[in-house]
Every structure is written in C-alpha cells, then in structure tokens.
Design a protein around this nucleic acid. Sequence first.
DNA 1: ACCGGCCATCAAGAAAGCGTCAAAGGTGCG
DNA 2: CGCACCTTTGACGCTTTCTTGATGGCCGGT
Lengths: 224, 224
Amino acid sequence: MIKILVVDDEPQIARALRINLTAHGYEVATAPDGAQALRAAAALVPDLVVLDLGLPDMDGTEVIAGLRGWTSAPILVLSGRAASAEKIAALDAGADDYVTKPFDIGELLARVRAATRRGNAGGDSPATEIGSATVDLAARTVKRDGAEVRLTKTEWQLLEVLLRNPGKLVGQRELLHRVWGPNYDRETNYLRQYMAQLRRKLEADPARPVHLLTEPGMGYRFKP
Amino acid sequence: MIKILVVDDEPQIARALRINLTAHGYEVATAPDGAQALRAAAALVPDLVVLDLGLPDMDGTEVIAGLRGWTSAPILVLSGRAASAEKIAALDAGADDYVTKPFDIGELLARVRAATRRGNAGGDSPATEIGSATVDLAARTVKRDGAEVRLTKTEWQLLEVLLRNPGKLVGQRELLHRVWGPNYDRETNYLRQYMAQLRRKLEADPARPVHLLTEPGMGYRFKP
DNA sequence: ACCGGCCATCAAGAAAGCGTCAAAGGTGCG
DNA sequence: CGCACCTTTGACGCTTTCTTGATGGCCGGT
C-alpha cells in the first residue's frame, strides 16, 4: 500500500484530500503544520508528500528542505499563490511538482500517479507461499529452499489459474478451457499429468499434497 | 551534458525554448512533429523530452506511448489546453509533468531541473553488471575487460527492456512489441537472432548463458 | 467380495521451440 | 557509386516439452 502524507492547515482541504486519496487505495496520514509534518514523515516514511505551502509555523521551502535531508520521496506542492517566483523557489528547493489552488481533484490524483509511478518502476511483485516454495507470478519465478525451480509454460498456466483463485475449487472443464483452449473438455488425463508435475516440483510430499488438492470428480483447489 | 528533445510545431516556440535551454547548459534538439520526434528520440536518447501536445500528425498520447516503450526519460508536456481531462490523459499516458501555455520560461526551467534531478539522484545506479561486462544504460556504453563493446540500436532496445526488469520474465510478445512495434507478434526468430548476438557480446560463455536466460515457450529473463 | 469409475504414475512417440549458420535486402556514408 | 554495417529471412540439427497410451491403486456402489 502506498503511503501519502498530506500537510495542510485548512481542515476541510486536508479532509477532502484524505477522503479522495483513501478512496483510490492510498494509505493517508495528515499533518496541520510544518513541525508535525516533519515528525510524521520521520515516523511514517511516506512514499509521497502532498504539501501546502501556506503553513502557519514554517516557510514551505524550509519544510521541503527538512524532508529532502533524508528522503527522496516525491513532494507535490499545493499553493494558493500562482506567482512564478514561488513555484521556482519550491521546485528548486526540492519539490517535484507544483499545483495551484483551486485545483481539480482528478488532476491532482493523476499527478500523484505520475509521481509514484517512477518509484514503483523497479518494484517487487507479490509472492505466494506454497509450503516451502515461494511463487512469484509476475516475475515467473519459483524458489524452493533457496534453489530456483523451473516450470514449463503449461505448468505456469495451470498454476496461475489455481493461484488466482485461492481456496476456491476450480472445475476440470474450466481448467482445461483456460490452459488448453475451449476445444478441450474431457482430457482430464492432461490435468492429472500436469498436476502431478506441479506437485513434484512444489509439494514437500508429492504423494500427499497439502496445497494442491484434488477434489475427485470435480476439479482441483489451491489451499494457501 | 544533459540532452533535451523539444517537440513543437510552432517554430518560434521551439526556437525560444532552444535558446533558453541552451543558455542554461543543456544540449537541445528539436522536432516539429510526432513521427520525427520518435525518430529523433531513438537516435539521440535524450535525458528529457519537452512535448507540445498540439502536433499536426499524431495525437499527443500516442507520442507519449511511443516514447514510453523505449525510454523512461521524463516527459514534460506543453499544451494550450487547460482542461483537466487533457492533463489527466497525458499524465496517465506516461507524462511526468504538464504545463499550460502561456508559460513562464523560468517556471519551465525549474520544472526541467526538478525532472532531471529526479532522474540523476533517483537512486538508480545506471551501471549493471553482466558477468565480466558492465552496461551503462544511461550513457549507452558497454565495457568488457577494459575494452568497449559496440551494440546496435536493436540490441540496445532489447537489452534495455530486459535490464529494466531484473529477474523478471519478459514474454516474447512483449519484447517484440517493445522493440519492433505492435505489429510484430510471432517473429520469434528475431528474438533468437538478437539474443544470440547479445550473448556473444556480453556472456562469458555464449553457449551457456548465465545472465541472459531463455524460458522456452515464454520469453527471456535477465538474471543479475 | 466383486466391479466400475476415477486418479496417480510411468513410459514412450510426436511436435514444438531454440540456437546456430548462412545469406539476401536496406540504409547511410564516404 | 560502391562499401560497410545492420536488419530481415530461411533452413537445419538438437533438446525440451507436449501428447498419448498403458498400468496399478483407491474408493464407493452393488
């Protein structure tokens, strides 16, 4: 979850931002002035800071400088002042973007996405645990006891369908359709063949599977 | 020297930008339309692109998409339209900033500084190790045992996609799309050809690659 | 207890994908 | 205009993977 720190002394604006950002899946914290903003930033280590320049206790550039001392998280400045000199000062102090009030909330969200996109570029992907093995669907890697395990294309496709429906039973026909195509309905021997291979590569005891389970007559199930 | 590509169909604006940017120590190239912009970007590999959205031949978001396939250099959009929907579309297409005309040249320069600062200090160590070879994506250089290794344009594009996803599997369709364009889907022989050349130039034992790996039936992977 | 259905496992032949070599178009440059 | 380099093709062994068939075990129904 991406953490955003909103710094604004006007409660209604802070509240509006919090609601909008939270609704879009961000984790939001707020601070009403510069001192608390710096403290909150140190405690939370946010991934992005939305900073109003019109704070009661400190100058905006000081806050930026205080943040830039130890973090390189993007800083998106809000301000009522449209003067170019103000913008230049903020940007050169270390801000990444500058939006003048009144602002369109959709545009602000787009700028937030643009700013966070860069940080996410080399990011990690979610991994699923299967007993002693770790499966990374995005990277297409499997690690087991530190060693890499290689899966073939068909094995990946089958495993992916199961892992994307954790705990749920997936019918044999659905598995066949998703992996081999709509013309395959009754080739359950394919499933047996490849489930056995997956178990051999992932389960601690392939003969007695714990996570890749067979539901006789119906299908298969991945149990986390 | 930081290279900037200015894309604008209005000669006086392009000229004004070139003069101002050059005066501030940047190396500037210009392009009057989208097609030439993409060609110039491929040839120059700029560190930043200033892009006017009102181009005669292509939609602005198409140009952004075309650039984003190749490079992750910051894109600063200029536009006469102040509508939020336009801004959101451009930012979500991959732009990093959006400035409406008429703009203050000082502010633009500050935004250029902010965008380039992020690229330099953003924590990305531009040098990647591949066995005995050292690849610098930003400088477009490869050194191996002290000697320079030359890569062709296509080789660079292919290598860049892989290196930007370290450890991750990149599907062959995605590789074809990113390097040769969206009309290439099944020309896996291209991939074989160029992967072989890259391995010959980078791997210690091209016949038994350690870093540029093949995942049969799926794609290729760069393993650090 | 017998039988039939379903599943796991093993063992081939068939097919697809990969690496490599070689050579024909294109393009830019001197 | 010719040259050099890069890109695009084509073809051929070779390995890996997919497909297919056969065998034996487990379980519920008769």
